[in-house]
């Protein structure tokens, strides 16, 4: 499920090299015959409009952002609207949605409010999704940057390690890690971060290998800048577009992983989570199917919003890819 999410959206091999460079309106030399001159000219026109403007005009990005903001709002206002513990009994069990207006989405087999569960679940899913991705992106960027910038033996070694982690089926490794460490929010988050970093490491390494050969890096080196400064101030900003695009998809993957884990009963038992709601609702699928359908729908919407944002960012940050669409 997971390796694939990330590997499939690989906008990376293009970005660094193909980023259009602004060219003067009138070429200084009239005899430019470079085969891609016209391509650069078209892209340069696009490049001129401001980034937020281009994002605002991208339907995928706008739709995804609106959807995600709604879900974030639900997570933020959960303690205000439903101050009690979402795991406590509040009403008659198995009320259907709409049956009692005090519980608009019904109650589960233990009389817990489904709406409260969904809103509090949003907090857990988003928290784990974003923190796990931060861990994965940080580890991956450091490893990838060292491998790509240093090259040589260190690179060979790190590539082996990345390959190793990409060979082990990541979801099975995740299950093993969480089962060994005992499920809690912290262990689930760390485990998801630990199985997702290779994706970003491979990407950052590829970007750094291309970028370190560029003239501006050579210029920085000849000015006597330290390696740290070159990596952080010169190369990393140029690798950022690719990292950002992948990050949005990684958050989606992390949320899907957390949902699957807690569906299997490997989530934190003390908090309500969308996956665990589906897990406990599945026993009643013949009689009260809304208990399974509603949390799943919310997961789909959340993941969809992040994927739409990822698509939009790919369009805007990778003009060459988007023209092929």
């Amino acid at each position: 499920m997971t390796d694939a999410t990330l590997d499939s959206t690989r906008p990376t091999e293009h970005s660094a090299d193909d980023r259009p460079r602004p060219v003067p309106d009138r070429p200084e030399w009239s005899n430019i015959h470079a085969p891609d001159t016209h391509v650069i000219a078209i892209d340069a026109g696009r490049q001129r409009s401001w980034l937020p403007d281009r994002l605002r005009r991208n339907p995928s990005f706008v739709a995804g952002t609106v959807l995600l903001l709604v879900i974030i709002a639900a997570a933020v206002f959960a303690p205000v609207l439903y101050p009690g513990d979402p795991l406590s009994m509040v009403a008659r069990p198995l009320l259907w949605p709409g049956q009692d207006l005090a519980y608009p989405l019904g109650t589960d087999s233990l009389g817990r409010d489904v709406a409260a569960g969904l809103m509090h679940g949003a907090r857990i899913s988003l928290l784990i999704g974003f923190v796990a991705t931060t861990i994965g992106v940080t580890v991956g960027t450091v490893v990838g940057a060292v491998a790509g910038y240093r090259g040589g033996r260190i690179d060979d070694f790190l590539v082996r390690v990345i390959e190793l982690f990409q060979t082990i089926p990541s979801f099975i490794l995740l299950v093993v890690l969480v089962a060994i460490a005992q499920p809690s929010i912290a262990t689930v988050t760390w485990a998801i971060g630990l199985v997702t970093w290779p994706t970003i490491a491979r990407l950052v390494r590829a970007e750094f290998r291309v970028l370190r050969e560029k003239e501006f890096v050579m210029a920085a080196r000849s000015l006597g800048f330290s390696d740290t400064r070159i990596v952080v101030r010169e190369i990393l900003p140029n690798a950022l577009p690719a990292i950002i695009v992948t990050t949005s998809v990684m958050v989606a993957t992390a949320i899907l992983m957390e949902a699957a884990l807690s569906f299997l009963g490997l989530g934190d038992p003390n908090v309500v989570s969308w996956g665990s709601m589906i897990g406990s609702g599945r026993e009643l699928i013949r009689t009260a199917w809304y208990l399974t359908a509603l949390p799943g729908l919310v997961i789909v919407l959340t993941v969809l919003s992040l994927n739409l944002i990822g698509d939009g960012l790919t369009d805007v940050l990778n003009p060459r890819l988007s023209r092929e669409r």
Partner: peptide, 22 residues
């Protein structure tokens, strides 16, 4: 296709059971 990409496998499994079996 974007929708397919966002659906958790276990959930669509349960929904297919609901539709085609139940």
């Amino acid at each position: 296709v974007t929708l397919f990409y966002s659906i958790p496998g276990f959930w669509i499994g349960l929904m297919l059971i609901l539709l085609f079996s139940v």
